[in-house]
Amino acid sequence: MKNFSGKALFLDRSDINTDEIIPAKYLTEITKKAMGPHLLEDLKMDDFDPATDLEGISVIITKENFGCGSSREHAPWALEVNDINLVIAPSFARIFRQNMFNCGMMAVEIAEEKVNDMFSKFAGKETTVETDFDAKKFTISAGSESIELDFSISGFDESLVKAGGWVEYADSNY
């Protein structure tokens, strides 16, 4: 199973699309590793610089409809090769969400008010997310402040994470 804990990056915008996560001009690459340096390269936000702000990040916390647009699985791959295996948001685009679990990664939906609460408590601070996969619990902390958050994923998604992805699961089950 992949690592789902570590330093968090807050991206305070909804509808971040897969063209912003990995621009189409890099889709001519055949290896996942080639995506690495270009993660979120086209995301234009006042307080975000992909060249410096992704350093050491393991978790992204963001707003609704993350991963909309193109179906490119290069988006999860660009995250994966940067050791980011967990994205937390109020909602995801269907294909992106499925691609994450298909790769044994996690796109976890958390109610909007709780995500907003996380933003107001932790955004801008050095924040870490600890994931207890078996207990389905996140512990989010910065300095002395800490909150626990239960999450749920479907039994099928859980099987994909444990199996390491959909190819492994499908091959052993069908």
Binding site: S71, R72, R94, I95, N99, N102, V167, A170, D171, Y174
Partner: peptide, 20 residues
């Protein structure tokens, strides 16, 4: 439906796909 490469790969191999 549009899918990612992993769904496509399983589709090619097994002729199946999972959906909600």
């Amino acid at each position: 439906a549009g899918v990612g490469t992993t769904d496509l790969e399983v589709g090619i191999l097994k002729g199946i796909c999972a959906f909600h």
